[in-house]
Every structure is written in C-alpha cells, then in structure tokens.
Amino acid sequence: MMRPNQARLDLSAARHNIALARELAPASKVMAVVKANAYGHGAVTMARTLEPHADALAVACMEEALELREAGIGAPILLLEGVFEPDELAVAAKAGLWITIDNDTQLAWLEAARLARPLQCWLKVDTGMHRLGVAPARAAELCQRIAACRNSLGPPVLITHFACADELENDATRRQIALFEDCGAGLAAPRSAANSPAVLAWPEAHYDWIRPGYMLWGHSPFGTRPQPNADRLRPVMTLCSAVISVREVAAGEAVGYGASWVAKRPSRIATVTVGYGDGYPRTAASGTPVLVNGQRAALAGRVSMDMITVDVTDIGPVRLGDPVVLWGEGLPVAEVAEPAKTIGYELLTRMPMRTPRVVARD
C-alpha cells in the first residue's frame, strides 16, 4: 500500500475563486498568476483549469512559460520578470509570450533584436516596492520608446506591484496608487496594479488588468484576519494523511525529538505519516491545529521528516487509518503558517513532488 499522503485538488474551487475575482473587478481583464508551479498546486493542471476563465496567464520566467506551452496551453503568458538574456527574446517571440521590461538593459535588448514577430510588452514602474521597475519619472519616456520599437506591438501595459496591500490600515498602498496615477496620466497605455489583496480590498487599484495569484488557490492574503471578500474563497488544495499509530502516554512523559513536548496529564497520542519531507513545516509549534476525523486536535512535539505526533486525548476514539487534514478544507493554511512563523504562500509553494497532487473534484 502507498502512503496516504495526498495534496487533493478541488478544481471547482479554482473556478469559483477566479469567478470571484471577475465579480470584484468586472471592468478589468484577468491575468491568472500560475508561477512557482501554480503556487505548489501543479502548473499544467491549474493552467488548464483556469485558461478558459482568464484573459492571460503569468509566470516568473521562461522555463515556467515553456512548460505550459509544451503542455498545449495557448493563452497569452506574461513573463513577470522579463527575459534574463537577449537570446530569450527570440524564444519569447517563437512561443508567443508577453514580456515585462524592467530596466534600460532589457529595453536595449528589445530595440537591438531581430525577431520573427513583435512582442506584447509590459513596462514595470517602481512606485514604492523598490524591487523591480523603472522610476516613475521615466515612465512616459520609456513608454514612448517601447511604442516606437519595431519589436513591440505598440504601447506597453504599465504595471506596478504593491508592497503592503495586505495591510489594510497602511497608507503605503494609497501612496503607490497616487504615484501610479501620476506617472500614467496622459499616456495611451493600459494599466495593471492589483495583486490578490488589491483585487479583494482595493477596488480603486483594479485598472485595466488584475493579477490574482494567491487568492486563486482559495487562501486569504490577510492571514487569519477576516475580510469580507477573502472569506468567500474556497481552498483548492487539501493536504491529507492518516493515522498510523495510537498510544497512551503517561503524565510526565515526553514525545518526539528533543523531548520538547511533555504530557501534563495521561494523554492519547496519534502518529500521522506526514512530515517536513512531505511539505509540512518543521517549524510548526506544538499546539498547531490538525484535523483528525474532522475534529480539531493539536500537534504535540517536533515535526519529523516523515511523521508528526498529535494529541488526540479530547476528540474521542481514534484508530489506525483515520483521516487527517493538515490544511485546506476545514483548516485554513494561515492557521498552520502562523504558529510555524511563516506565511501560507511559503507552505504551498514548498510542497515537494514527493506528495502527489490528486484531483479530487473537477
């Protein structure tokens, strides 16, 4: 028998989530971000699911884009980081990809290239993230150069990225919006600014294109804080396993590596066959919620490579083979990420290939 570990995928939830994005931004086109193996869900599976419901897809780099093209994905695909060397421009043209221009060097490569066909370009503007993008004061100049370039399909789409959109009380997003408005004033160029938190909570930032990513997988970018629109999302991935052992532990006895968890009372401990080798975070602290038979129990002791131990004293009979949910349906990934001192984005994207992705609902 195979280990019971699975990342079960509910494809209907992905369609629900992208429909919610469209509902919230009805005047905008939708670019579904499927980078990093579709945030750990499986790039090809999720791109095929979302392609009929999106106007375009987005990935981080050429390798991710070509994987989708080789799988038969025909939708426009944007390279969010652009090309890393000039030879990639010819590959992008052949594959019909869209490119981001982030700096003068990338633009010079585009102007000097001899391509089979022109490319749809997006111009990244740095409005405060200070990671990628040109200075706002140069947006008009570079927009004109791209529009005039023989290798460009006309004016670019202006794109920026928010640093603090998940912090609703933070004025940084309003400042970025104002700067983006200023630098785009008078330019005949579509605009795009809204990532998942902005799609959900900053309607003034929807513009011509929205770029939902994390929300497509059914998780709130606001963590465990409630938000009306995020509360309507449905998780796509449910990380599942099963109980493989149950034992009684006396008060005062320790469980797991380092003896970090000690029973304060006579306790029943279930061993579950999942660990950091399967994508469950080693940093998850004792007390992290785990669903056993649909009931909440608590992680007890350190996470091992292949196993965890769970205090099931208070949840009734537990037997070998009983189902366990680590996150997903019934248990938001943020509730696991928080005690692991990380974010749900990391837990999803670090899901290893050892854990099979299984389509549970289509």
Rank of each mutant, 00 (worst) to 15 (best):
A285I: 08
D322F: 07
I308M: 06
S267H: 04
T45D: 00
R138C: 07
V125L: 04
A337Y: 08
E67L: 15
M351Q: 15
D10V: 00
H130K: 10
T238F: 07
R282V: 07
V336L: 04
A300F: 13
D171H: 13
R8T: 04
A19S: 14
I146L: 08
V272Q: 02
R114V: 15
G256P: 08
V33S: 01
A65W: 01
M351L: 14
A65I: 05
L187V: 10
K94E: 15
S196E: 00
C240W: 10
A193Y: 13
M62K: 08
H206S: 05
T238I: 13
I99S: 04
P52E: 12
M305W: 12
M305E: 15
H206D: 09
G133S: 03
L78I: 13
L110D: 03
S245Q: 15
R302M: 10
F162T: 13
G223E: 13
P281A: 00
C121F: 07
I99N: 05
E23K: 11
R191P: 13
Q144L: 11
Q6M: 12
A254C: 03
W109S: 04
A54N: 09
A340P: 03
G287S: 10
S12F: 04
D126S: 07
E64M: 02
V83D: 01
A263Q: 05
A90H: 00
M353Y: 04
G213Y: 13
G279A: 05
V312Y: 00
A27F: 04
A242K: 12
T105I: 14
